[in-house]
Structure formats: C-alpha cells, structure tokens
Design a protein around this nucleic acid. Structure first.
Lengths: 315, 315
DNA sequence: TATATTTATATAAGTGCTTATATATATTAG
DNA sequence: CTAATATATATAAGCACTTATATAAATATA
C-alpha cells in the first residue's frame, strides 16, 4: 500500500474502495460468529422495512441509493429467507408491497445487539481519528451532488489545455502558415475569394503595415491557429482571418486567439471591433456572442460568404 | 438517500460504497470523452510500471492492495491491449517480469493531462469541503490497521452482553435452580458426588448459614448461572459451585459471577480465596488465571474430580 | 375507446473485484 | 538426491453490484 499513499490525490478513489471493502467485509463475519443468518447488504432494506412498511420496490429504491434491480434482487433473497412477506396491491396489481414477516420481526431483537455493536464500533473509530466523519461524508456527497467528478475533471482538463495555448506575434517565417491555415478552413466551408488572396498572400503589406496585427496560436509546440486584426479606420477595427486547424478543434484555441485580438484592439484605442461571419458557423457564432459581440443591422460585405456582421464596443 | 442519512453511523459503510462508486464511475467517461482507450482500474498498475519496472505479479500485488488474481487479471488485459510487455525471468521461470511496452510508454503523454485533471479536480473538491481528506483517509486506514472492524464490533457486542448480565442475591425460590444448574454441568463433565449433594440440596443450611453466599446471574430475564462462596475458616474462603447453562456460554457470564464472588469475599475480609478444578476444564482455567488465581502445591480434596487447587490472595 | 406513453418490476448479461483451488517451479529437509 | 514444502501464477467460481432490456399493467391521449 506504500505506493498508493505516495500517489496522493489520484489514488483517492482506489483507497476509498479498499477502505469500503474493509468496512463491509467484516460485517459478514460478525453475523456468522453470532450465529445469525443475515448479511450486511440486507441491512438497509431490512431496517427500512422495520421502520416503515409496507413499501413497494420503487419506494425502497428511492430511499436506499441502490438501483431498482439491486433492490429487487435483495428483496427476493429476503422473501426466500422468509424474513419479508409480499402483499399484492389491489388497486395496482403491478405493485408488490413488502413488509417484514413474523419471522423477520422476531429477528429484530437478535439483530439489534449486532447493529448497536457496529454503531458503537464506528463511533469509537471516528473518535479515535478525531474527525466528525458523518459530517465529512455529507460534505463530500453534497459537493458531488452540486457538480459530479465528470464535470470537475472535464473542466480541469479544458483549463489546462487553454493555459497550454501560447500566443505568438507575427514573424516573417510564419507567412506561409497564415495562408495555409486560412485556406484549410475556407476550402472546407466555402471557396477562396479574391479579397482573401490579397490579404493572405501579403499579410505584411496588407495588414501589418496598414496598422493591423497578425497573431498565431501554438499548442504542444505546433502552430495550430491564426487570427488578424485589420484597421478599417481610426478607432474602427475588424477581427478577421481567424482559422484553427481541424485536429485541435474544441480546445478553445479560437477563444484564446479572439481574446488576444480584442486585447490588441484595445491597445490601439479601438472604439469598435467588428467581424463578418456566416450563420452556418454555429460554433464560431457562439464564441463571438460569449465574448460580447452583438449582431448589427445590414451590411454590404466584400465577401460572398458573409451573411452577418457583429460588433463589440470597446470603451 | 434521506433514509441513509438518518441512519447515522450504521449506514456509514453503505454511504462509503456509494461515494466510491461515484468517484470511480466517472473516470471511465473521461477517458472515453478524450478518446483514450484506457480504464480507471488500470491506472495504479500502469502508473506503478511507469515508475518502476520490471516488476513481477507478486511485487505489484504487494504495492497495490489488490489480491493476486486481480493483479493477474489486470495485467493480462494490459498485455492484450499491447500496453505492457512480458519478459520471462531466466533465473526463475515461474516469474513474469512486467514492464510498459513502447506503445504503453507512448501513451503516457496522452494520459498525463487526464491524470493531472483528475488530481486537480480532487484537490478542488477537498478544498471545497475544507478538510484535509488525504490525512483523514490515512487516519482511518491506520486505525483499521491497528484493529479491524471485526474485532472492534466483537468487543462492543461482548461489552454490551457483559453489561446486560445482572447479578442476583440468593432467594429461597432460587433453591431448585441452584441445584439444576450445577447438576447440568456435573452430568456433562463428571458425576455427582456425595459432597455435591450435601451442598446443592441444602444451600441455606450448608452455605449461607455457615457464613457463605450464593449468587445468580440473570441474562435477558432468565437465570442462567450461579456460583457460591464457601467459608472454610476465618479469612479463608472457597469459590465453588459455579455453573453456567450451556446455551449462553461464551458471554462472559462466568467472569461476572466470579468477579461478584471475589467482591463478596473481600467484603468478608477474606485473606485467601481458593478453588478446586480439573485441568480438562480449559476455558475455566483460563478465566481463573485472568482473574489472578495462581496454582498452589498439593492438596487433598473432598472431590474425586478435583485435580488442582488455585488461590487468590486478597490484601 | 383503441392506441401511445408511462410506470413498476423482472430478467439477462456484464463488471470488477473476491475466495478457493490448481499447477508448475523452486527451495529446503532428511 | 529424493521427498516434502514453499512460492509464483493461473484458473474457476462466486458475489454484489451495475447497465440494458423485457414484460406487464396503468394512465394519458387522440
């Protein structure tokens, strides 16, 4: 077990499982020793029925946190053992009403000392550790109720991926990449128009020298995305030529690029940052909205593919 | 789940199991989402091999807390998946040396972000609860290492049983019980001798009126045991006629009776309390030793069954 | 008032462990 | 140097759940 302890948080699940086993396994031995024909897994259901009955399978399921087939299985065993009796519901013949049988009721007095023994043993164990374990387990349950492990882990992975994206400034040796990344997505969704070629073949002359910017996104050592800031007039800029290669889609690289363009626009004291896009690019539209872009009225575009214009007011 | 929470400590095992399930189940979904052909249960072994290898099945077993068949099973799956390779040990052909294969080594970089994501998610969860969960689980593990649940529960049950035994003073209506309880065990192990009959038929005249005592043990409303204190001479008493009915053996009723006799002897300012018994009564001998009785030299007894004499010095 | 949908339970098959036991090889004892 | 014992691993079967699906009855809908 030394290795598991070294592992820290990643092995918490495994250690929790081992702990659970140690807790539950020993219960069976106790009943055996006391010569009682009873098993630990019957406990919750048996006890529930001793408190409230009759109950249907479905009602028991909702109380115990087991699945319905598990409840059916345990119920069948208890019926077979003669500890639980079944009454058919007259008004709804699908329902099986379960209650303790006379034999089951008799058994309670035999079981109680074992349960008390277990309860006292657990209480002692907890006071040895010095922690209020019942409160702690509730806290963990509540935290997982609010957000389960799947969403917690997903978020952390996304966050790390996002932080792993590096923004690079334009350099002459990236010129071809700027064109290739844009051609890739233009060819996928639309066609390359003349206006595109002008900008994509001469980014230095057509964009940077005119007061704009070109940036790149690097992920795991490869350049996987690009975006440009075009100067339209004093205080008015355009976010354009944003492209992310297909293999790394879904890693929020577009978001990081767009955020950088917005930052650069602010640096240049832009009042308005606009962009043109097509309604069929759903993911892109969603991103722009999230960043604060709002739809504007009619526009006449240089591009055939452009169907709408969005803009972001920068104070 | 409301019912489980109401139950308190007795349902701790069940809640621990449910919590473990929630922890481990979600792991599988993450690998799936990230398109990695990997399962949570492979993790500890895979990670161990990435740190130290080659290792044999037995070596892995001792590190991970799983049983050997479980390790063999997981190892076989990993070999089948091509993530682990097997080398035969030359000096001991029984041994299989396991290590990550090139494919396995390659996979590490793919897996690392998921593991980091899991680790960070768990850390966040813990800081949300405000408890140092790694420390707490260690505490629980250590406490169970020192004494497992089986022994903890057993002790608590015994303790409660012991406390449930009531000592009753002699009353004329118990006279027959005194005889019957003693006849029961005498018939079982030995035969009834003349000296027995004298005492057992006339406890009032032969024991109590001569400065001795007779007590009874009641358990769950039934009288199940008896014992007598006989005055031998001033300051010298005998513990005798102790009998516990067979059905309730093992519940420390004999111990409670003997303790009461010792208490009464002290009350009467006894210097020496002795008893006669037979070496074949192993459980009884053990009890007497535990109470402080020690073997004495030769003795000449009234009883044929008596093989040894023990005594307890009372200050 | 027949038909679609929902609800209650059962059944089947799978999972990830366990315990019990088998098998083959290595080590130790006589 | 052989027989007994110990060790390393494999195999079988079981357990306590799960997910997926079937079945039958009740309820809603058109």
């Amino acid at each position: 077990m030394e290795f598991l302890k070294q592992l820290g948080e990643v092995a918490f699940g495994t250690r929790l499982r081992l702990l659970t086993d140690r807790f539950i396994q020993d219960g069976a031995k106790i009943y055996q020793k006391q010569n009682i024909d009873f098993e630990p897994r019957w406990f919750t259901m048996f006890y529930l029925l001793s408190q409230r009955s009759p109950l249907t399978i479905t009602e028991i399921t909702s109380e115990l946190g087991y699945t319905q087939p598990a409840v059916t299985q345990i119920a069948n065993i208890l019926v077979k053992k003669g500890l639980v009796k079944v009454i058919k519901d007259k008004s709804d013949t699908r329902k099986r009403l379960l209650a303790l049988s006379p034999k089951g009721l008799d058994m309670i007095s035999e079981l109680k000392p074992v349960w008390r023994g277990f309860e006292n043993a657990v209480k002692d164990l907890f006071s040895e550790t010095g922690f209020d374990m019942m409160y702690i387990i509730s806290k963990l349950e509540n935290a997982l109720d609010e957000k389960d492990m799947y969403h917690r882990i997903s978020e952390k992975i996304k966050q790390e991926q996002f932080e792993g994206i590096e923004i690079l400034k334009y350099r002459p040796e990236y010129k071809d990449l700027f064109r290739e990344l844009n051609y890739e997505w233009l060819n996928k969704y639309f066609t390359i128009e003349n206006e595109d070629k002008v900008l994509l073949l001469n980014p230095e002359e057509e964009i940077i020298n005119k007061g704009g910017e070109v940036v790149f996104a690097s992920y795991k050592g490869n350049i996987v995305g690009t975006a440009a800031l075009l100067k339209y007039s004093e205080g008015e800029y355009e976010l354009a030529k944003m492209a992310v290669t297909e293999k790394v889609q879904g890693k929020q690289i577009g978001k990081k690029l767009a955020e950088e363009i917005i930052r650069l626009a602010k640096e240049k004291n832009a009042k308005i940052l606009f962009l043109e896009t097509n309604v069929k690019l759903i993911a892109a539209m969603k991103l722009y909205k999230k960043l604060g872009f709002i739809l504007t009225e009619n526009h006449n575009s240089k591009y055939a593919r452009s169907t709408i214009k969005m803009e972001l007011k920068l104070s």
